[in-house]
Amino acid sequence: GPGLTDLFKTEKAAVKKMAKAIMADPSKADDVYQKWADKGYTLTQLSDFLKSKTRGKYDRVYNGYMTYR
């Protein structure tokens, strides 16, 4: 089956995709945050998933999740 690194890459891609969806349409934020909360994502995990070469690119999404939880 898929190894943990593959799983991480898949999760990371999914999280980034959802983060971009929030940035494009902030009204989606609560739905996405709820999904992440259901998956039990911690802020540390989210921070790892949303690492970007562009500093602060996903800060709004991260901060939103922090206040959501």
Score class of each variant (00 low, 15 high):
residue 53 K to T: 11
residue 28 K to R: 12
residue 30 D to K: 12
residue 64 G to H: 03
residue 37 A to S: 11
residue 19 A to K: 00
residue 69 R to E: 04
residue 63 N to H: 12
residue 30 D to R: 11
residue 28 K to S: 07
residue 33 Y to C: 00
residue 12 K to C: 08
residue 39 K to R: 11
residue 27 S to Q: 09
residue 6 D to T: 08
residue 28 K to G: 06
residue 10 T to M: 11
residue 22 I to T: 03
residue 27 S to P: 03
residue 62 Y to H: 04
residue 30 D to S: 12
residue 56 G to K: 05
residue 16 K to E: 06
residue 54 T to M: 05
residue 47 S to A: 13
residue 55 R to E: 15
residue 20 K to W: 09
residue 64 G to C: 04
residue 41 Y to G: 00
residue 30 D to N: 14
residue 26 P to H: 07
residue 30 D to V: 15
residue 45 Q to C: 05
residue 58 Y to H: 03
residue 54 T to R: 11
residue 32 V to Q: 03
residue 41 Y to R: 01
residue 26 P to L: 06
residue 15 V to E: 00
residue 32 V to F: 05
residue 9 K to S: 05
residue 45 Q to G: 03
residue 51 K to Y: 08
residue 3 G to L: 10
residue 62 Y to N: 03
residue 31 D to A: 12
residue 51 K to W: 09
residue 3 G to C: 15
residue 15 V to N: 02
residue 59 D to T: 08
residue 54 T to V: 13
residue 58 Y to E: 01
residue 53 K to I: 06
residue 63 N to K: 15
residue 3 G to F: 10
residue 46 L to H: 00
residue 22 I to N: 00
residue 8 F to L: 10
residue 8 F to N: 07
residue 41 Y to L: 11
residue 69 R to V: 15
residue 56 G to W: 06
residue 44 T to H: 10
residue 4 L to Q: 12
residue 7 L to G: 11
residue 47 S to T: 09
residue 35 K to M: 14
residue 16 K to Y: 04
residue 30 D to Q: 12
residue 50 L to F: 04
residue 18 M to F: 04
residue 11 E to D: 05
residue 23 M to W: 03
residue 18 M to I: 03
residue 12 K to F: 04
residue 49 F to D: 01
residue 14 A to F: 10
residue 68 Y to R: 02
residue 26 P to V: 05
residue 46 L to M: 10
residue 27 S to R: 12
residue 9 K to N: 11
residue 21 A to P: 01
residue 43 L to N: 04
residue 58 Y to A: 00
residue 3 G to H: 15
residue 56 G to L: 04
residue 11 E to M: 06
residue 2 P to N: 12
residue 54 T to E: 09
residue 12 K to S: 11
residue 25 D to N: 07
residue 17 K to G: 07
residue 59 D to S: 09
residue 5 T to W: 06
residue 41 Y to P: 00
residue 58 Y to Q: 00
residue 27 S to L: 10
residue 69 R to C: 14
residue 18 M to C: 10
residue 37 A to Y: 13
residue 42 T to E: 04
residue 34 Q to D: 04
residue 48 D to G: 13
residue 38 D to W: 06
residue 55 R to H: 15
residue 4 L to E: 12
residue 21 A to K: 06
residue 39 K to W: 10
residue 50 L to C: 02
residue 1 G to K: 12
residue 8 F to G: 07
residue 48 D to Q: 15
residue 34 Q to T: 06
residue 16 K to S: 04
residue 36 W to M: 02
residue 40 G to R: 05
residue 17 K to S: 11
residue 22 I to Y: 00
residue 42 T to Q: 03
residue 65 Y to T: 00
residue 14 A to M: 14
residue 3 G to R: 05
residue 55 R to Q: 15
residue 11 E to N: 04
residue 12 K to D: 03
residue 59 D to Q: 13
residue 53 K to A: 12
residue 66 M to K: 15
residue 54 T to H: 14
residue 62 Y to M: 15
residue 38 D to Q: 13
residue 12 K to L: 05
residue 10 T to W: 11
residue 7 L to W: 14
residue 22 I to D: 01
residue 33 Y to P: 00
residue 9 K to L: 10
residue 60 R to E: 09
residue 1 G to I: 10
residue 40 G to Y: 02
residue 40 G to L: 04
residue 20 K to E: 12
residue 8 F to H: 11
residue 59 D to M: 08
residue 52 S to R: 04
residue 50 L to P: 00
residue 12 K to M: 14
residue 3 G to V: 10
residue 37 A to D: 05
residue 6 D to L: 08
residue 11 E to I: 05
residue 23 M to S: 03
residue 53 K to W: 05
residue 47 S to H: 12
residue 9 K to R: 08
residue 42 T to M: 02
residue 64 G to L: 02
residue 6 D to E: 11
residue 27 S to W: 07
residue 60 R to L: 15
residue 69 R to A: 08
residue 53 K to C: 09
residue 41 Y to M: 11
residue 62 Y to C: 10
residue 10 T to S: 13
residue 31 D to W: 09
residue 65 Y to Q: 00
residue 27 S to Y: 04
residue 9 K to H: 08
residue 12 K to G: 07
residue 30 D to P: 11
residue 64 G to Y: 02
residue 13 A to I: 13
residue 13 A to Q: 12
residue 52 S to V: 08
residue 55 R to Y: 13
residue 23 M to L: 14
residue 15 V to M: 03
residue 36 W to N: 00
residue 53 K to G: 14
residue 37 A to R: 09
residue 41 Y to C: 03
residue 59 D to G: 05
residue 38 D to E: 14
residue 31 D to K: 08
residue 43 L to H: 04
residue 26 P to G: 06
residue 69 R to G: 04
residue 26 P to E: 09
residue 48 D to W: 14
residue 52 S to T: 11
residue 19 A to V: 04
residue 35 K to G: 09
residue 28 K to F: 06
residue 59 D to F: 09
residue 33 Y to A: 00
residue 22 I to G: 01
residue 13 A to E: 10
residue 38 D to M: 10
residue 64 G to T: 02
residue 33 Y to M: 01
residue 57 K to W: 05
residue 24 A to C: 13
residue 29 A to Q: 06
residue 10 T to H: 10
residue 61 V to H: 01
residue 56 G to Y: 06
residue 11 E to H: 05
residue 50 L to K: 01
residue 59 D to K: 07
residue 59 D to R: 09
residue 58 Y to C: 02
residue 51 K to Q: 09
residue 16 K to N: 04
residue 7 L to Q: 14
residue 1 G to Y: 11
residue 69 R to L: 15
residue 34 Q to W: 05
residue 62 Y to W: 09
residue 34 Q to V: 06
residue 37 A to Q: 08
residue 47 S to M: 13
residue 48 D to P: 03
residue 47 S to Q: 12
residue 59 D to Y: 10
residue 40 G to P: 05
residue 44 T to R: 15
residue 24 A to F: 09
residue 34 Q to R: 13
residue 32 V to C: 06
residue 2 P to M: 08
residue 24 A to L: 12
residue 39 K to F: 07
residue 4 L to T: 11
residue 11 E to F: 03
residue 27 S to G: 08
residue 44 T to D: 11
residue 62 Y to L: 15
residue 68 Y to F: 09
residue 30 D to G: 08
residue 2 P to R: 04
residue 41 Y to A: 00
residue 2 P to Q: 13
residue 68 Y to S: 03
residue 62 Y to F: 15
residue 35 K to L: 15
residue 51 K to L: 08
residue 7 L to A: 13
residue 58 Y to R: 03
residue 20 K to V: 07
residue 29 A to H: 02
residue 59 D to H: 05
residue 69 R to S: 07
residue 38 D to S: 11
residue 56 G to S: 05
residue 22 I to H: 01
residue 8 F to W: 15
residue 25 D to M: 04
residue 38 D to L: 10
residue 32 V to S: 03
residue 24 A to V: 10
residue 56 G to F: 07
residue 23 M to D: 03
residue 18 M to K: 03
residue 47 S to W: 09
residue 58 Y to G: 01
residue 55 R to T: 14
residue 31 D to E: 14
residue 69 R to M: 15
residue 65 Y to P: 00
residue 40 G to S: 04
residue 26 P to N: 08
residue 7 L to F: 12
residue 35 K to W: 08
residue 47 S to P: 02
residue 55 R to A: 12
residue 4 L to V: 11
residue 69 R to Y: 11
residue 8 F to V: 09
residue 54 T to Q: 07
residue 47 S to I: 06
residue 7 L to H: 13
residue 18 M to G: 06
residue 36 W to E: 01
residue 14 A to R: 11
residue 10 T to Q: 14
residue 13 A to N: 10
residue 34 Q to G: 10
residue 59 D to N: 08
residue 22 I to S: 02
residue 43 L to R: 03
residue 66 M to P: 01
residue 66 M to F: 08
residue 10 T to I: 15
residue 10 T to R: 12
residue 54 T to W: 07
residue 5 T to L: 12
residue 23 M to A: 05
residue 18 M to H: 05
residue 39 K to T: 06
residue 25 D to Y: 04
residue 4 L to F: 13
residue 39 K to N: 11
residue 36 W to C: 00
residue 42 T to A: 04
residue 4 L to N: 12
residue 21 A to E: 15
residue 53 K to L: 06
residue 68 Y to Q: 01
residue 22 I to R: 00
residue 43 L to Q: 04
residue 40 G to F: 03
residue 30 D to T: 10
residue 6 D to Y: 05
residue 13 A to W: 10
residue 57 K to G: 04
residue 64 G to I: 01
residue 20 K to G: 06
residue 19 A to D: 00
residue 21 A to L: 15
residue 23 M to R: 03
residue 19 A to G: 02
residue 13 A to K: 15
residue 67 T to S: 13
residue 60 R to F: 12
residue 39 K to S: 08
